[in-house]
Amino acid sequence: MAPYEKAFEALGLWSWCDAGATGGPMSMDDLLAKAGAAGSDNAESFPFPSLDVLHKACGAIPRTRDMTAGLERLFLDVKDPVKVVLDPVTQPLSWALRNAIDLMQSLPWWAAILILVAIAHFAGRRIGVTVFVLMAFLGLAFIDHFGYAMQTLAIIMVCTFICVLFGVPIGIAMSRSNRLERWLTPFLDLLQTLPTFVYLIPLIFLFSVTEPKLYGIAIILYAIVPSIRLTNLGIRLVDKDVLEAGEAFGMTSWQKLYRVQLPLALPNIMAGINQTIMLSLSMVVIASLVSAPGLGTLVLRGINKLELGVGLVAGLGIVLLAIVLDRVSRAALQRVNKMHQSRT
């Protein structure tokens, strides 16, 4: 007799259980259990009342396997209506990613390097950083990884742009409403703690693997969090006295936002953007599992085909790209910080 049968009997649920009972062994576990039941009976007479154990006693209770299958069915059921809305909304993302990748690859190598170095220079204004960026790209080009690096960079640029485009306004809204902050925070926590692979699972169902927006959405969902959080934090940390001064001179809330709050929160917002860039880079590698082009595909090839050298070099290329992105965005951040130096 299975455990807990007595309990169901005592509760008078026996008929309900019988009605739901499904005849015949349903899973490998059941078969194994049946085979081994004769020998090791009552090895554990008081097991934890999990769904599987209870199912044995009462057929009407679903097994864990049924629950996951149910979740899958639910997801498949809502998939189509969700797609009707989500597909057109996210279409521009596919378009932007495709065009950015094409553009970066269609540029001649010298023009691409020149543009990137120029961007690095104007963002950071630090000669050391500029030289480092130049050397890094020349190095990548020298080992024939320039094209891959450009693809990765194109994806990061598009995704970071969209993260800032949405993350900063969401952060602003969050800073103005405590209720919104309370509601959004667990959601942001979830996005940050969810294992990165898990992002890909529902997205694969929703979109075809050939569409760039599949990995675009995964990257954006993962990387947008620090932009939102640090914008919110930055605005909440704005010197109350300065804000009060703005109010005392009759600023509208719009004027307060763009003359006081945003400029004073800028160091924090920039730190958030720096984090967003770094998170996009880490996600773009994982996204190569779902056809994101770039250096990540080489890493994947290294793993799949055990091509140690290919994987390692590509990995180091990613590190180099990470350092470039970090140094440039950080130099820009420091430049902003300097302007905000001690106002005591």
């Binding site: 300065v242 009060e244 001179f249 800028l266 302007m339």
Partner: peptide, 16 residues
């Protein structure tokens, strides 16, 4: 905007 102005203990100038 028109009738009053204020001076603050901690100056409260816009640093940027």
């Amino acid at each position: 905007r028109t009738q009053m102005s204020m001076v603050f203990q901690k100056f409260a100038l816009l640093p940027h």
